[in-house]
Simulated scan of single mutants.
Amino acid sequence: MKINIVIALLVLFVSCKGNSQNKEKATSTKTNDNKEFAVQKTNSEWKKELTDAEYYVLREAATENPFTSQLLKNKEKGTYVCAACSTPLFKSSTKFDSGTGWPSFYEEIEGNVAYDVDYKIGYKRTEEHCATCGGHLGHVFEDGPNPTGLRHCINGVALNFVPAE
């Protein structure tokens, strides 16, 4: 009898589904390794065009150290573009200080940022990358300000800033 209760409790415990599994954007287990992008280059071509830091973040999905980006405190009006292919990704009007040490935005430029699931640190996160070249940008979290409630936490080295004219 005790064994049946223990087994029932184990089954119940294992079948429980936590809130972290209900993320709206983190719904796929696919990675962008086999996706086709409009801009495609070999690793050696990317290495010739990007700095070591840009290559490490954009092509190897690394994370730059917090509070090191020159774009973190940028308050100019303009557009943040992909450092690899210049695709416009975020408008300066959506940038905010999240206190995390990385440039943060509450909204992307629709259609220019793609999403994937990342399990690299042991739990599911929503990774974002450039929809044109596939370069890793950072992650999006559901703890941002209104109107979206999202925090696009982006590696500054993955971005270039184009001032408004």
Rank of each mutant, 00 (worst) to 15 (best):
Q21P: 00
C82W: 02
S28L: 13
G135K: 07
Q70K: 15
A8F: 12
V39A: 05
F105M: 06
M1C: 13
N43D: 13
E110Y: 01
I5V: 14
C153W: 05
G111Y: 00
C153L: 05
S15G: 07
L10V: 10
A62Q: 14
N160I: 10
N19M: 07
F37Q: 04
G122E: 08
D143I: 15
D118G: 04
M1S: 14
K41D: 00
D143P: 13
V14Y: 11
Q40H: 08
R125S: 07
L72T: 06
M1Y: 09
S104G: 01
L50K: 08
N34W: 01
T42G: 02
P88N: 05
E76R: 15
I121G: 00
A83K: 11
G101T: 04
P66A: 15
D118T: 04
S15V: 14
W102H: 03
N112C: 04
Y80P: 09
Y123D: 02
G135F: 04
A8V: 08
D143Q: 12
E60R: 15
L58C: 07
P147S: 06
K30L: 15
K75R: 12
L50D: 01
R125P: 10
F67Y: 13
K48Q: 15
G111E: 01
I5G: 00
I121K: 12
E60A: 05
T31K: 13
L9G: 15
